[in-house]
Amino acid sequence: MGADEFEANIVRGVFTHYKREEDNSMTSGKFDEELSRMSTLASMLNPDAMILFNESFASTNEREGSKIAQQIVSALLDSGMKAVFVTHLYLFAHAFEELHMDTALFLRAERKPDGTRTFKLVEGRPLDTSFGEDLDAKIFGDDTLHPKAAPRLRIVA
């Protein structure tokens, strides 16, 4: 369900950098494609623009993806732009948290003490987990996380 209302200041353009499917022609890898699109996007941006990112730079490892995302977002902010970034890259989010920026707002999906998810966004510091183990246990059963559990292979056709 969408928001009942939304309020924001005026920006000079809204741009997006969302993840795409992998290049079927194999002319480039997914990470290369993401960087190429970011380069093209950067040439179109102007001060006071807003850029929306969704899981950008997650196609490489955590350390490299976080570092690249941090460099790009820092450059955008230094140029007077706004960035909204949905990510599971903890190192990236944590690096910005440590800057204690008055303009930074960290939101995450609400999770009740019993583990129930409400799918509401609430303010909160970045966490170093996306609770993937919870989903694994829910989908495949609790025994998949225990080392003594019998290995299982599921093939989906």
Rank of each mutant, 00 (worst) to 15 (best):
residue 45 L to M: 05
residue 141 G to A: 00
residue 85 F to K: 00
residue 13 G to Y: 04
residue 5 E to I: 10
residue 70 Q to Y: 15
residue 108 R to W: 04
residue 63 R to S: 10
residue 151 P to K: 09
residue 29 G to Q: 00
residue 52 L to N: 03
residue 105 L to Q: 15
residue 20 R to C: 10
residue 107 L to H: 08
residue 139 I to N: 01
residue 77 L to M: 04
residue 4 D to Y: 00
residue 19 K to V: 14
residue 51 I to S: 03
residue 145 L to E: 01
residue 154 R to A: 11
residue 153 L to G: 01
residue 72 I to G: 00
residue 61 N to W: 07
residue 154 R to P: 05
residue 153 L to H: 08
residue 58 A to W: 08
residue 85 F to Q: 02
residue 76 L to M: 12
residue 103 T to C: 05
residue 142 D to W: 03
residue 86 V to M: 09
residue 72 I to Y: 02
residue 28 S to G: 11
residue 66 S to Q: 06
residue 81 M to Q: 04
residue 143 D to H: 11
residue 36 S to P: 00
residue 125 R to D: 12
residue 147 P to H: 03
residue 142 D to F: 05
residue 75 A to P: 08
residue 91 L to H: 14
residue 157 A to I: 07
residue 57 F to S: 06
residue 40 T to R: 13
residue 117 R to Y: 15
residue 81 M to I: 07
residue 100 H to P: 01
residue 97 E to K: 11
residue 133 E to A: 14
residue 135 L to E: 08
residue 140 F to K: 00
residue 18 Y to W: 13
residue 155 I to R: 05
residue 10 I to A: 10
residue 137 A to R: 07
residue 31 F to Y: 13
residue 145 L to R: 11
residue 9 N to F: 09
residue 76 L to T: 02
residue 98 E to P: 08
residue 126 P to M: 10
residue 149 A to Q: 08
residue 2 G to R: 10
residue 83 A to L: 03
residue 151 P to V: 01
residue 129 T to L: 00
residue 7 E to G: 04
residue 138 K to P: 09
residue 45 L to W: 02
residue 32 D to R: 11
residue 124 G to M: 06
residue 46 N to Y: 04
residue 87 T to N: 01
residue 13 G to C: 04
residue 38 M to T: 05
residue 152 R to P: 02
residue 107 L to Q: 07
residue 1 M to A: 13
residue 32 D to H: 13
residue 10 I to T: 13
residue 115 G to A: 05
residue 111 R to H: 02
residue 117 R to E: 12
residue 28 S to K: 14
residue 144 T to H: 03
residue 59 S to T: 14
residue 153 L to Q: 04
residue 4 D to S: 09
residue 19 K to T: 15
residue 153 L to S: 06
residue 52 L to G: 02
residue 14 V to D: 08
residue 140 F to D: 06
residue 118 T to A: 01
residue 26 M to F: 05
residue 37 R to V: 01
residue 29 G to T: 01
residue 155 I to T: 13
residue 89 L to P: 01
residue 120 K to V: 03
residue 25 S to C: 10
residue 16 T to F: 14
residue 134 D to K: 05
residue 45 L to G: 03
residue 8 A to P: 00
residue 145 L to G: 15
residue 132 G to V: 09
residue 39 S to H: 10
residue 97 E to F: 15
residue 18 Y to M: 08
residue 23 D to P: 10
residue 2 G to W: 00
residue 75 A to R: 12
residue 95 A to F: 06
residue 131 F to C: 05
residue 26 M to C: 10
residue 100 H to C: 11
residue 92 F to V: 08
residue 114 D to Q: 02
residue 51 I to M: 12
residue 80 G to E: 03
residue 25 S to Q: 13
residue 22 E to F: 12
residue 134 D to W: 07
residue 27 T to W: 09
residue 14 V to R: 11
residue 119 F to C: 01
residue 34 E to V: 09
residue 88 H to V: 05
